[in-house]
Amino acid sequence: MKTSKDNANFKTPEGYFEGFTDKLMDRISTQKDNQRDLLSSKSSGFLVPDAYFEGLNSKILKKLDQDETKVIPLNPRAKYLYYAAAIAALVLLTIGIRYTQSAEPTFESLAKTEIEDYFEHTASGFSTYEIAEVIPVDDLEISDVLENEFEDENIIDYLDNSLDDFEELNLTDYEY
């Protein structure tokens, strides 16, 4: 068994693994790399509350149930009021838009800052990885990201200041 690099400081709360022994032994005998699994919890100072892992299953199942259980409104008639309010708001909005705006809003009419603000502040839930998956990178041009094109001179200046050696760029086919 490998030794932990910092097991001198690694503490496990008293009784933390109680009840886990059988399961862990099963895992050790059925999975080749389970010894490493145990070591993955080497903590270099990080602790967990007593019996945290024992109660985790039921916590997750409870949360799953909450996610899947529909909320029953206390006052079923209230929803009709919401519908009425929504319709009234829609009518007012339509009238308002007709009188204040002649052209229909389009995606292009949104200011870039509004789009940026939306992603910055609404916590859209998309990670950079997820966004990267849906953006067709191959179709992108540098001009899509940068509003002003760089002059060649500026690029050379930047590289000159940022690189120790032009060789790093491996520009074997170009003269520089």
Partner: peptide
């Protein structure tokens, strides 16, 4: 699902804990 949680909870916990630091 119970087996899945039991098998991976510790490994995933420590992986996540290393990123967010707080229990």
């Amino acid at each position: 699902f119970e087996v899945l949680v039991n098998t991976y909870k510790e490994r995933l916990y420590w992986h996540i804990r290393r990123i967010v630091l707080n229990h």
